[in-house]
Design a protein around this nucleic acid. Structure first.
Lengths: 205, 205
DNA sequence: CGGTGAGAGTAGACACTGGCAACATTGTTG
DNA sequence: CAACAATGTTGCCAGTGTCTACTCTCACCG
């Protein structure tokens, strides 16, 4: 028996995905700053230069991580909204959206920070597109609301962006320790409520 | 002649402040990630281990930077609000507050990102306190508004946090390239307007 | 005075990192 | 089956943060 471990083939097979998996674990455990390519290579059982075949750069790997993060976030947001069966209940859907975002951001704090970080590749349109697709969803929600007359206002995309930014800001403050977790629930509630009050047509009922 | 440069005294005199200044320049030029202690030491003309006498750690220096950032931001916000002479014009004051925040965050993008980063020292209460003091200001603004009956709502601190989070989120999205600079102005406007509409007492006049 | 610490800066070492180049091993395909 | 493109490997380099041991200076105290 030549080596103690079972014979590992020269070609790993799916290094790229395995690296991303390891990267996500590392991200969760120690944050983006501490993430080391060589560390990941060791985790996966491959030489220190192997990752370079799949990611030109440390940044490139982080960008890939961010992009997949946006995709997953997008799915979860969509699922949360769709789960509210009643298509007419805009408040409920908005609330579901916000809650889902907050849940994702707290369960994946380091990932979320990475996604919102400014240091993406200059040319990396992929992550920007994924981000746009993600928060474009809420624009659709708003538009529907406006078409049914539940909301007024100008540009639905603009209105959507504002509420998206609000939730993003809340989670950012939470993850940076500026607000206590206990206040989260209430904060999101008032944010959505305030927003709906502000966006409803002039005459109440 | 022993050295070409004029005789530099063994003791630098005010290394700490000079390091922080150099750090801020580096931050502005190349971001927090690229900031290197040895680089700063070279900039200031001191040996690579000298910074350690003033900052136990790279993190410690970044924390100090963040803390001073919060202090400066706080001053600018206060000044902007005070500049609106009319104490009764809450919308104007709110708008001034938001605009001042956005200006700071765009003019000091990397610093702002650092301030909102989650990776502060576990024990570093200083930065947390500075942050709290900063966005506590808006709570006061809200409270005044409520006392004069211009606003309704529950906890003024909570309401204040929501609007603060909104502006923070908008600038975060801007700095990470999710929204174009051109939309900034409009976004902040609708954010404040929406907020005021949502927070005003039930019967419009 | 004059010596003696404590504070502040220096020099060197260590373990680590990301990136590069040259080489080795595969799977594929003409 | 030979050539080739992918994919991994080894070795190297410049840089970094941190630690330890040493040196310089100044202020204070006997």
């Amino acid at each position: 028996m030549p080596d103690t471990t079972e014979r590992r083939p020269y070609h790993h097979g799916n290094l790229r995905t395995d690296l991303l998996d390891a990267a996500e674990r590392s991200l969760r455990a120690r944050g983006a700053e501490q993430l080391s390519l060589r560390d990941l290579a060791r985790d996966v059982g491959v030489s220190h230069a192997a990752p370079r075949r799949h990611f030109a750069d440390r940044r490139a790997l982080l960008d890939a991580l961010a992009e997949s993060g946006f995709r997953r976030l997008g799915e979860q947001l969509r699922a949360a909204v769709d789960e509210i069966g009643d298509e007419d209940d805009l408040p409920a859907r908005l609330h579901a959206f916000a809650s889902a975002y907050v849940r994702f951001a707290t369960e994946n704090a380091a990932l979320t920070e990475l996604m919102n970080s400014s240091k993406h590749r200059p040319g990396a349109t992929a992550v920007a597109e994924a981000a746009a697709a993600t928060f474009g969803q809420i624009g659709d929600l708003i538009k529907e609301g406006q078409e049914r007359g539940e909301l007024e206002g100008d540009d639905p995309a603009e209105t959507g962006l504002v509420i998206y930014a609000t939730v993003l800001g809340i989670t950012s403050m939470l993850n940076s320790g500026m607000i206590e977790p206990a206040r989260l629930e209430g904060l999101v509630g008032t944010a959505v409520t305030q927003f709906l009050r502000g966006a409803r047509p002039a005459e109440p009922r």
